[in-house]
Amino acid sequence: MLRLVGIGHALPAIEVSTEFLAGQISEANPYPWIEFRRTTLPLEYIEATGNAEPAQAIVVASESPTSLAVSAVRLALERAQLDPDEIGLILAGGATPRQTTPSEAQRIGKLLGLKVPAYDVCSVGADLALQISSLKKWKKSRIPRYVLCVSTSTATQRVNYRNGSEAFLIGDGACACILSTAGKEGFEIVSAQHRTDMVADYHSSIEIYGHLRIVQPAFKDWYSATLEKELTDFFGYEKGSPTSVCCEQLVAEQADLIRSCTAEQVQICCETGKFGYLLGPGGFLALSMKWDHGIECSSVVVLSGGVGQSFGTVSLKQ
């Protein structure tokens, strides 16, 4: 039985308001429910350059994907009451690496002082759901006692702050989950699934030397259709409705869509309005932010997906 025994998140300190962005970008804002995003970029840099050259962002950024990831991991370890050297395997993902070699997992392992198997398992928009769904399918004998799963993104360092509407959507941050096959703490992973859509036309991309691009309304249409299908398929075979859904909000009608596929009274936990869309961590940010306050609901579904044409759903229960 696989359990989530600890979760952590990290967000950079700099806040980008919609008001600030409206002063930079002439395009209309398709994401009016997002008031703030977090960024690793100084606001003066954004104002002065519009981040026209993403290579320059690295020089001025306050954090890297790796530093955010390690902060998230340390919180997860603290909550799980574990020392780093109890981790037996690191899986990581992230679409904005500072280095294409070594892997993000290996960079994280170095900063944690670990000498363990570490490699990237990545789908961009649903890294953590992918990693958890993979572990759920492994032979129990092959899973170390504690596995660290991480997704990290500094996608604002790839945003064009002069043209396009991506700036209104994107925020930076990282999430880390500690999975275990031992003990009774935390949440049981009831089920986890991950899907990639190779049929739809590309609606989003990050060129290795260029900017993040999201094509609207293709992205919105794809996300809405995928979310509805995912929820319908998922709850078609899951018994009962979750009491809570953790997710990121990428379309205006998302809450209605979720309630129509689950139950009217389902609690929706979402932090996108305050922190922006983080890509890989998905709904795990919302779960992490509730962790210390005690999660009252007995069953939670965490949704992730979007950029990268991937989608994941993880169902947990206490």
Partner: peptide
């Protein structure tokens, strides 16, 4: 490109419809 993943771009280019991700 770092998004979509290399696996997805190659799979899509070949007409594969299963799951694709980078390891």
């Amino acid at each position: 490109a770092s998004a979509p993943t290399e696996a997805l771009r190659i799979a899509k280019g070949l007409g594969i419809e299963g799951e694709a991700y980078d390891v």
